[in-house]
Every structure is written in structure tokens, then in C-alpha cells.
Amino acid sequence: MEIVNDKGSLAKNQEYLNGSNGKKTSPFLKKILGKKNLGDVIFERLTLLFAVLVFLLVLFMGWEMYSNSLLSINKFGWKFLITTTWDPYSETFGALPMIFGTIVSSLLALIIAVPLGLSVAVFLSELAPAWLEKPFSFLTELLAAIPSVIYGLWGIFVLVPWLRNVVEPFLQKEFPNSPLFQGAPYGYDMLAAGVILSIMVLPIISSISRDVIKSVPDTLREAAYALGATKWEVTKIVFSNARSGILGAIILGFGRALGETMAVVMVIGNRPQITASILNPATTIAGTLANEFSEATSDLYLSAIIELGLILFVITIIINIFARLLVWGTERKWK
């Protein structure tokens, strides 16, 4: 590097060459930095610090809830997971009705959302022309952007009355002996929670599986067309190649449904019970947290509620790790 120098002293030039900003670098700093620029090292360390922060955040969340629910963990142990009574007055706490409600309402949501969501994904990735795909993708993503409390509001004043007056009487008339449809149809029940959850998880399932399907290379489609396959047959082949990623998308949707709070708590009826009928009120882990957290009076009560949060955290972490691995694996396979 040659520095153009008309009148300045050679010493100043030398100084410039030695340090980065005209200052002399101390031998100690030089030893640490090597050939690196001081600013670079500080910048890299700084960003690293924040990356570590994100990493620690996940661990910290688990630890924080564990340490705050020790009271309940020590008192009830593993029995917490299989006890069916949740009674703040006698201070007996068992999470089974909440776990049951969480899983059943989410499965109900998947029963509705998976066929629809996958059809939408196929439509968007394989069938729709570009001018139709863009607005449709936008609309489905908008569906995901609506705050869940607004879904809940809509659920209370539109969906629940409709279920109570139209759908549930119809189900009871058509299947009078089915254990699934017993009880008085109030509208605030497991079915309402399942329906509203299905609307909310559909965009996740459809957009992630669309991306996965799109990552399947075109050569595969061209080969199938060349053999005379119809569009549907080509789609089936593409589908079977994107299988594990699509499974990942479904599991991610399941994870979202498990943790969804507001829309569910507003329509599910909030009663900690286990019944076969989906026309009965139920409750979920997230719903109990939302309802009872700020009312928890005793330490044990609060600790039991935080333990519910810990259970939800552990379940969703496991589900998310598994699903992300599936999605990442499929998308990388073709790159």
C-alpha cells in the first residue's frame, strides 16, 4: 500500500500504517488481535454475545419455570400428570383434564385442517397460475396475521351461536347414539375450540407444505409428464417425495394448536373434565393459565399453574424440534 504524501512527515505516515486510526497499537492488543482490526473483533464479539443470548433464552425459560414450580413438583410428583381433579379450594391439582383437552382439541383441529391445508398447498404450488397464486398466498397469510383474540371474539358472537343452533342439533339428529355427540349443545365446547383452531393452523400447514412441495425439483415433474402422467398423478409423485417435510408442516401446525390460548379459552367453556362427547365444555393447559393465573392466591396454586406452563413448554419444544428437523431435512435434500 502506497500512501500519497506531498508535504506531511514520514513519521505521520508510519504512524498511520501502524495503527488503524492513527493511534499506535499497544503490543498487548497486537498479541490478541493478530492481523485483525480492533473494530472487527469488538463487532464480532458483540454480535456473538447476542446470539448466545438467544441460545440461552430457550434454556433460561425452561429453568425459570422449573424453579418456580418446584413447590408443586415436590408435592405432587409425577402424579400431577395423571390426577383428574383440579380443585383450588382443597389444593388438589392434577393436570390430566387440561392435557386431555389440549390434545383432543388440537387433534380435532388437525382432522379439519390437514385435508384442507394440503389441498391448498397443492393448489398453490402445482395448479394455480402465477396471477392467482400471489393473491391466494397473500390471503392465506393474512389469515395467520389476524390476532387470535379477534378469532375468539368472532367465535363467541358468530361461530358459537351457529354451532349451537345449526351444526350441533344436526349432528345429534343424524347420530343420536354416537358417544361423541351427547349432552346439551351449548356451543361453548370442544367442537367450537377444534373448529376455531383449525382456521388458525390452516395457514401454517398450507404455507409450509407449499414451500416444501415447491422445493421438489422440476426434473421429477418433467420426467413424470414425459411418461404420460396426468397432473394429479404428477402431484402424487411430488407429494411422496415431499412426504417427511409435509409431515413436519402438520406437526408444526399441531404444535401451534397446542399452545393457542385466546381463541380457545373464549369458546371452549373452560371446565376441567374428561368426557367422550365433543359437545361438552372442556379446558386446555393454555386456557387454564389464561383464566386462573392472575387469580392464583396461594403459593401452591401458583406453582401448580406454572408447572402447567412447564408441561406445555416441554411438549411444544419436543414437537417443534422434531418438526423443524423434518422440514429442514426435506428442504435441504434438494439443494
Binding site: 446470539a51 448466545v52 438467544v54 441460545f55 433464552l57 430457550v58 433460561f60 425459560m61 425459570e64 419455570m65 408444526l252 404444535g255 401451534r256 397446542l258 399452545g259 393457542e260 390460548t261 393454555a286 393459565l289 389464561a290 393465573f293 406454572i306 406452563g309 406445555l312 413448554f313 411444544t316 419444544i317 414437537i319 417443534n320 424440534i321 418438526a323 423443524r324 429442514w328
Partner: peptide
């Protein structure tokens, strides 16, 4: 970190509230 950020985005918001 990338993976954990993705996992973090799947943690229910109410759990974050508890924390």
C-alpha cells in the same frame, strides 16, 4: 442458534408470559 430461534418461534405466547 438458527435452529433454536426457529424452535423459540413455536413456543406458545402464554408460556412466554409465564416466564
Amino acid at each position: 442458534v438458527r435452529f433454536l430461534a426457529d424452535v423459540l418461534s413455536g413456543i406458545p405466547s402464554i408460556v412466554v408470559g409465564v416466564v
